[in-house]
């Protein structure tokens, strides 16, 4: 992908050795801020996403909801999740959240991926899939706490939101940001966006009566490069199943990076054991044996 030359790489999936060209230049971490409190559910971001990425609008299912489809798909990376929430005082409230790849600082997809270069994390925080290196094992699907990577069964490769790495590499903001009419979406550096998000959450708490308003930037995966401002940060599950404590399965963390190599070493000790058995104990021959060199 063209973006590989534009961005400095931080991590490569299934890669032997160091990451090429690390630390060559100073790059700021980028961040998308989604202020769900000002989202009107117009779905302009959904349209902008499929338009920019040149995907045709895909078939969908109608589930008695305003939501375009039940979940994001391999060629539909951006989806507003709608939830009609009943509050404690009995009033109704729309909870609308723009669902897309969170671009985690510690990406579970990249940890799980066994294919060299299929998933790349740039220094600016964007996690990108290179389909030409994808082997179609779908471990990334299992590694992701947000149910984002989606398998294309005809190409046997996995797709997801790129945070418009092609646009960002050219100095443009992502397509969804460009399309948003309410200012609910912002794009900038991680520190700027965090500052803005905290200020907005404070405003919601102090002036709008949302006592539990807060910023969603989960520390369990080292933070994300898409952060939310929520009316109720204590219950992120209400917003279309946003996990309160996203976790990468143990299989792709300690097992993969520690136990796996050790386990392989232990299994290979079997080879060493038989070699030394042959040297120290020797073979067991059918009896009786002729005495060698003594006839």
């Amino acid at each position: 992908m063209a973006t590989e030359r534009l961005f400095q790489i931080r991590a490569i999936s299934g890669h032997v050795g160091t990451v090429p060209g690390g630390g060559m230049q100073h790059e700021l971490e980028v961040c998308k801020l989604v202020d769900v409190t000002t989202c009107i559910g117009c779905k302009a971001c959904e349209v902008a996403c499929v338009e920019w990425n040149k995907y045709p609008f895909r078939e969908t299912t109608f589930n008695n909801t305003y939501q375009t489809m039940p979940s994001t798909e391999w060629n539909y990376w951006n989806l507003i999740k709608f939830n009609e929430h009943q509050r404690e005082d009995g009033t109704q409230m729309w909870l609308m959240r723009k669902d897309q790849c969170m671009h985690c600082a510690d990406p579970g997809c990249l940890r799980a991926c066994p294919a060299d270069g299929a998933i790349v994390q740039y220094t600016n925080g964007i996690v990108d899939f290179n389909q030409e290196n994808c082997i179609g094992c779908q471990y990334c699907v299992s590694g992701c706490p947000f149910n984002i990577p989606k398998f294309n069964s005809s190409t046997k490769t996995v797709f997801k939101c790129t945070l418009c790495s092609d646009r960002v590499g050219s100095g443009l903001e992502p397509a969804c940001i460009k399309a948003c009419p309410t200012g609910c979406l912002h794009f900038g550096t991680k520190s700027e966006m965090t500052e803005l998000a905290v200020a907005r959450a404070t405003q919601l708490r102090e002036q709008s009566g949302f006592a539990d308003a807060g910023v969603y930037d989960p520390s369990s995966i080292g933070g994300t490069h898409v952060i939310y401002v929520l009316h109720d940060a204590k219950h992120p599950e209400l917003y279309g199943g946003l996990p309160a404590d996203p976790q990468i399965p143990f299989s792709y963390t300690y097992w993969k990076w520690l136990a796996k190599p050790i386990g392989l070493m232990i299994a290979l000790l079997g080879l060493l054991a038989v070699v030394f058995h042959y040297i120290f104990t020797g073979p067991k021959r059918p009896q009786p044996e002729a005495r060698e060199g003594d006839v």
Binding site: P249, K260, G263
Partner: peptide, 27 residues
């Protein structure tokens, strides 16, 4: 995803035991 994540570990362990065993078998 959780079934896959658990299977991933069990599949590895079972394969490693067989890998260790195959050396002894061939020897």
């Amino acid at each position: 995803r959780i079934a896959v994540a658990i299977s991933y570990v069990l599949h590895d362990i079972s394969a490693l035991i067989m890998l260790g065993g195959i050396f002894v078998h061939i020897y």
